[in-house]
């Protein structure tokens, strides 16, 4: 069963890449997207509604602000929307609490990004190489 449709996935990817932006090292989606989807299908089943809420809110807000979908925005525009949803400058267009789902998504993205690859994220321990954590034995 698909957890998200294609458009929702593209929004989720853009959201995770805003939480951990790509640079010479991967962004949140490339490094932790697989982890998050695994988790939503297992340990974090109960959190599916907040991710559905997140992609819905991001779609509505980005269309209202920029007349584009969230995944079509540039880096600064994406950042601004998350920041302003987080601090309340932009109110949620639907019921729910953006600061709550942002907090959850931030944590889950970091877990996928920095935990061991067996959890589904951090391929080739790229984040560990990035920060200088080397496993010697």
């Amino acid at each position: 069963m698909m957890l998200f449709n294609e458009q929702e996935l593209r929004t989720l990817a853009a959201f995770m890449d805003t939480l951990i932006p790509p640079d010479e090292y991967p962004g949140g989606w490339d490094d932790a997207g697989n982890y998050l989807l695994n988790q939503i299908a297992s340990n974090l089943k109960d959190e599916m509604p907040i991710y559905k809420e997140a992609v819905k809110v991001l779609k509505i807000v980005s269309n209202a602000e920029y007349q584009m979908d969230y995944y079509e925005l540039n880096e600064q525009q994406r950042y601004r929307i998350i920041k302003e949803l987080e601090n309340g400058t932009i109110a949620s267009p639907i019921s729910g609490s953006p600061p709550a789902w942002i907090t959850h998504a931030v944590r889950h993205t970091a877990e996928g990004y920095y935990a061991n690859p067996e959890n589904g994220g951090n391929p080739e321990t790229l984040s560990w190489k990035m920060i200088g954590f080397e496993v010697t034995a």
């Binding site: 805003t18 939480l19 951990i20 932006p21 640079d23 950042y79 998350i82 942002i102 907090t103 931030v106 944590r107 993205t109 970091a110 877990e111 920095y114 935990a115 984040s127 560990w128 920060i131 954590f133």
Partner: peptide, 19 residues
């Protein structure tokens, strides 16, 4: 561990996400 560092060893004034 890197994830423990992320959770517990960051200063409070460093943003929790972003660049």
């Amino acid at each position: 561990l890197p994830i423990i560092h992320w959770y517990r060893a960051m200063p409070p004034d460093v943003p929790r996400w972003g660049k």
